[in-house]
């Protein structure tokens, strides 16, 4: 059941109900970034929980601590990737991909009996790196201020009589209400200065 139906319980009878959904403000790049953020969480949790199993599968013996560290790194990059600052998260993911590839490279050596597993993992990481780069470029393009699109609004005063003639205009018929006065007029209350 769609979430929009579930949330009907929080509404009254007269509130409008959704009949047909329209296109979203999310771009394809935003959606890809979100998927990669959730992938980071899944992978990060797995690396934190089962580093020994991963090390054995890939023939990376003795690297369990490093894999656990990479799990923490994945979780750390998931947070900004899932936030509105996706570019930061995706950039950190790309850097992490480079680390992953560097770590897998020695496991591709013919002396590693699990080198086929390592080759599959390397291909997967390489594919995900391409997705990360595509998402980063897409998000950056979709949410940038286009160069040369600066506008000059120096003719928009909003004060039809001009700023100088408008200065203090409202004071002719408006006083700050007593409940908004912050400045006291205490000078009259001060003891007279001894002459």
């Amino acid at each position: 059941m769609p979430a929009t139906n579930l949330t009907r319980i929080a509404r009254s009878k007269g509130d409008p109900r959704i009949e047909r959904k329209g296109p979203s403000s999310l771009t394809d790049a935003d959606r890809l970034a979100r998927a990669l953020g959730w992938l980071s969480i899944g992978l990060g949790m797995t690396e934190l929980v089962a580093p020994g199993r991963i090390a054995r599968t890939l023939g990376l013996h003795g690297k369990e601590g490093l894999i656990r560290g990479y799990g923490a790194r994945e979780l750390a990059s998931a947070i900004p990737t899932l936030s509105v600052n996706k570019q930061v998260g995706l950039a950190s993911r790309i850097a992490g991909d480079a680390l992953d590839l560097a770590t897998l490279a020695p496991a591709l050596h013919h002396s590693n009996p699990k080198r086929h597993n390592a080759a599959i993992a390397t291909a997967l990481v390489a594919g995900i790196t391409l997705l990360d780069i595509a998402a980063y470029a897409g998000v950056k393009a979709a949410h940038r201020r286009e160069p040369g699109s600066d506008r000059d609004y120096s003719d928009r005063s909003g004060l039809p009589r001009g700023p100088q003639a408008s200065r203090g205009l409202a004071r002719k018929d408006f006083q700050i209400p007593p409940d908004y006065r912050a400045e006291g007029t205490v000078a009259a209350e001060l003891p007279a200065r001894a002459s």
Partner: peptide, 12 residues
């Protein structure tokens, strides 16, 4: 970040 222009029932 997900706003949509949906068709909804009229308010009453």
């Amino acid at each position: 970040e997900d706003i949509r222009c949906d068709t909804v029932s009229d308010p009453a």
